[in-house]
């Protein structure tokens, strides 16, 4: 569904992504793993149209999205749940969710709202509360809920487990499997190597703007170099 070919991007004269090839097929969970500062956030910025690629091609669902605006990318159904949540703190939980369907899925807004509330009963309880007053875990639920309001055809989750307690991290990965179980393809961008590899079908390891390793989750997990560098084994 998502095809990225020899993607290069950066800031000013500094190139961060130095030629990436990546694909996500229908129904897959694909993980992009790597530590801080290897280009994960830059990759997401390019995929969501916040940053222009210098070179390369992004195709989604047969359409070329290289250089498209964020609005067009959302319109196409490629929905990005950003790192740090980026919810609207001054607005109520309900308003945050409603804005999720600003560009896409507006006709079925109330039905989708009900669906999100069923997935996250906690958000229903707090629907009138200002989003900025929610706990970190609740804000992460809200960010994902807001993404679901746009009826994603592919969901990019950027560091969804960041800053959550171990119990909530476990819950987050259960949720990711559940969303995927309903047929939603997910691109999971994470630092949490162990748990991401448990739920992903394929994985890419990003190092210094290049994919150092890629393959099925099984292959990646058993790679001796990965074991040494990321798992300390």
């Amino acid at each position: 569904m998502l095809e990225v070919r020899s993607l290069r991007a950066g800031y000013g004269g500094t190139e961060v992504l130095r030629g990436l090839d990546l694909s996500v097929g229908a129904g897959e969970i694909v993980a992009v793993l790597g530590s801080n500062g290897v280009g994960k956030t830059t990759l997401n910025k390019v995929l969501s149209g916040v940053l222009r690629a210098n070179e390369g091609e992004i195709r989604f669902d047969g359409k070329t999205l290289t250089g498209a605006s964020s609005a067009d990318i959302v319109e196409a159904g490629l929905i990005h749940v950003p790192e740090g949540r980026k919810i609207f703190p001054n607005m109520s939980v309900r308003e945050n969710l409603e804005l999720g369907s600003y560009r896409r899925g507006r006709e079925r807004r109330s039905a989708n709202l009900e669906r999100v509330f069923e997935t996250f009963p906690r958000l229903r309880e707090r629907s009138g509360q200002a989003a900025g007053t929610l706990s970190g875990g609740e804000q992460q639920m809200l960010a994902i809920g807001r993404g679901m309001m746009a009826e994603p055809r592919l969901l990019i989750l950027d560091e969804p487990s960041l800053g959550l307690s171990p119990l909530l991290v476990e819950e987050m990965f259960t949720l990711i499997r559940r969303l995927n179980g309903e047929g939603l393809p997910i691109l999971l961008v994470e630092q949490n190597v162990v748990q991401s590899l448990e739920c992903a079908s394929r994985a890419y390891i990003l190092e210094n703007g290049l994919f150092a390793l890629s393959g099925t989750a099984e292959q990646v997990r058993n790679d001796p170099e990965l074991k040494r560098a990321y798992l300390g084994m």
């Binding site: 969501s48 149209g49 916040v50 964020s70 609005a71 990318i73 959302v74 319109e75 929905i79 990005h80 749940v81 950003p82 949540r85 980026k86 919810i87 609207f88 703190p89 001054n90 607005m91 804005l99 999720g100 600003y102 560009r103 896409r104 807001r146 746009a150």
Partner: peptide, 10 residues
């Protein structure tokens, strides 16, 4: 309040 979040919902 949240320019990037706003871009990402389109």
């Amino acid at each position: 309040k949240e320019k990037l979040g706003a871009s990402l919902v389109g």
